[in-house]
């Protein structure tokens, strides 16, 4: 009897999961495919400001610090082997391949993702989405689509910014402070970083993360139970689910992209 109950619970859990995945998939299709219009462009711009520009500060500041720490840690290890010349290479590769896409995506989920969920959730709770439907406007197109596209475009740009300031932060600590030869910092970097292999793959990663994080954020907002408790839960879920998804997908993508490079 007890075992039967558990099996039933397992089955119900699986079905619930599949159902919500299905709903999320249909949701993504319905909202992302729409005819661009002049008005849609304005709505998108607005969200670009909200999602992208407003996240710039936290992303850039974090990037500088990560680059500086990376440089400091790398130097203390490399100097033991007399290989501090390789500092630039180490900083650039760790940032481009791994840290920028992942850390920027995590910060983005915390800063912009949770705000998207809360905003859409609040619009749902105050019946704004329903009233939009009653006016005869599809909220998927009007509310969700611009946010989805803004997130999708913003995160890769933010990731690029993160890498650039991170490399600069590494330069500050490594070259200006610890005294690594400047030419070695840049030339070591240039000889080991491939534009398509490293910069390109890093960008692909961040595109995937952008899609996943924004998708989770807007879907959680759209699908939540419209009470204050529901909103706070959905916001938490956005951050938790997107963080897990980013880290898990990062492993998969890294295996596919850099697995054979050794």
């Amino acid at each position: 009897m007890n075992l039967g109950h558990r099996i039933t619970a397992l089955g119900r859990g699986t079905l619930d999961l599949l159902e919500s995945l299905g709903r999320a998939g249909i949701f993504l299709l319905q909202s992302s495919i729409s005819i661009p219009s002049r008005e849609g462009w304005h709505l998108w711009l607005r969200q670009m400001h909200f999602v992208g520009v407003m996240s710039l500060a936290i992303i850039l500041v974090s990037g500088v610090f990560i680059g500086m720490v990376l440089s400091l840690q790398g130097y203390t290890i490399l100097v033991d082997f007399g290989a501090e010349e390789a500092l630039g290479q180490m900083v650039a590769l760790s940032l481009l391949r791994e840290l920028s896409p992942v850390v920027a995506a995590l910060l983005f989920a915390g800063r912009a993702g949770s705000a998207l969920t809360a905003e859409i959730g609040l619009m749902k709770a105050t019946e704004q989405l329903t009233s939009m439907e009653m006016i005869g406007v599809d909220p998927l197109r009007r509310v969700v689509a611009p946010r989805l596209w803004a997130g999708f475009v913003s995160l890769p740009l933010l990731t690029v910014g993160f890498s650039v300031v991170g490399i600069w932060g590494g330069y500050l600590v490594g070259v200006e402070w610890l005294g690594v030869f400047e030419g070695a910092y840049w030339s070591g970097m240039q000889s080991s970083v491939g534009f398509l292999d490293d910069v390109g793959n890093g960008l692909i990663k961040s595109l995937v993360f952008a899609l996943v994080v924004t998708w989770i954020a807007v879907f959680q907002g759209y699908d939540l139970i419209p009470t204050s408790e529901g909103i706070s839960r959905a916001t938490t879920r956005t951050v938790v689910y997107s963080s897990l998804a980013v880290l898990g997908l990062d492993f998969v993508l890294t295996t596919l992209m850099f697995g054979e490079l050794g």
Binding site: L122, M123, T126, E127, Q128, T130, M134
Partner: peptide, 11 residues
């Protein structure tokens, strides 16, 4: 037209 309990104006 529908008038909602909370007004539901677009914030």
């Amino acid at each position: 037209g529908m008038l909602f309990q909370s007004g539901a104006l677009f914030s």
